[in-house]
Design a protein around this nucleic acid. Structure first.
Lengths: 206, 206
DNA sequence: CCTACCGATCGGTAGG
DNA sequence: CCTACCGATCGGTAGG
């Protein structure tokens, strides 16, 4: 059987994907900096080098574009965290997994800062149907941390009287708040992750 | 000399102040929920029970209104924190001050949630001149924490090798992120503040 | 991917 | 504090 090549269409799809990514990159940065409501499709189009109407060749609405950008922000974090935890040796303790997850989370924030910042900053301001789906994504990411913490307590690595919900939110809060820092003060994800981990899980007191 | 009373004007000023506060209350909630760009003056007016044009009797622009709301959010936090620290006995250690400051910060977040949430959520999305002034306010609040932490290190309450910048951002981050929690899980500011304090400054490990 | 355009809505103002 | 309105801009569409 002869394989029929479709070079024209293939190439066109590649270009389309490239343009699509360019639109999303610019959108992520604009949503992060100006917010959902103050970012117009004309802002996005002109940043990408096209006219507003042309965006509809790639996305069917502003809402769809925003949802895709914000979703990718969270997915990227979840992916990096998963990788970081799975890269550990199989005998790693749940506490070592928490540490790796913290570093992975920070790595994602620094790597894909525009997307993750857009998610964190615009999550509450996006139309309700989108927010509902983003919330479900956040909850499944939350569940990952819940399990890590639960395992640490069950395995007697964390004291049983520590409130697990507060601990989870505290960790995620300190990690996410790094996006509000002056960017120069970050250091590497490994360094910063280690500092945060030690603050909570080692002696901070003199 | 005879004091000339101006009851009409006095009363009118009181009413004006009341209306002004009503507008700000509604604005705070709308900015928090929908963001700066997606909240229209018509939204604010109808929530307050008036017509859009009438807002200009109390505020000269959307930007001025937003700045006043967001500024009040941060000022309220700074005030509560200052109160909480000053309520301590004079022999209180810098570490006890940090603890009190954490509780005070959380108290403000729960008390004036709409204003503080609006500040935290809209800070990055507000027009540049406003953001610049809000930034200066944040920095002076930050300096307060910087001093508390510096004193704790100098007084040998916190280990000297703890990175003070990271610690400050970690504390503020975990405190501010409570605004993203499901409201039911908070507990009282005192309880939650104690939990956070113990996480960082007491043994978390089993 | 652009031109040209739609109705709706925006922040803001004039005059009362 | 309202009515009535302004020009500008919005998200989105038709037709090419």
């Amino acid at each position: 059987m002869i394989k029929i090549e479709k070079p024209a269409k293939t190439q066109r799809t590649v270009i389309q994907q490239r343009t699509r990514k360019a639109i999303m990159d610019k959108s992520a940065r604009l949503f992060r900096d100006k917010g959902y409501g103050s970012t117009s499709l004309r802002d996005i189009a002109s940043a990408t080098g096209m006219k507003a109407g042309s965006l509809y060749y790639h996305f069917s609405s502003k809402e769809e574009l925003a949802e895709e950008v914000l979703t990718q922000g969270l997915f990227h974090v979840a992916e990096r965290v998963k990788e970081a935890v799975e890269a550990l040796p199989s005998e790693a303790s749940p506490l070592e997994k928490i540490r790796a997850a913290m570093v992975g989370h920070l790595t994602a924030l620094l790597e894909k800062g525009d997307y993750t910042s857009a998610n964190i900053r615009c999550y509450n301001h996006v139309p309700a149907p989108i927010k509902k789906r983003l919330k479900a994504d956040r909850e499944s990411y939350d569940a990952f941390w819940e399990d890590l913490i639960q395992s640490s307590v069950t395995g007697s690595f964390i004291r049983k009287d520590v409130d697990q919900v507060s601990l989870r939110y505290a960790l995620i809060g300190m990690l996410n708040w790094t996006l509000e820092w002056p960017a120069t003060k970050h250091g590497s994800p490994e360094e910063l992750g280690a500092k945060f981990f030690d603050m909570v899980f080692s002696d901070t007191l003199a």
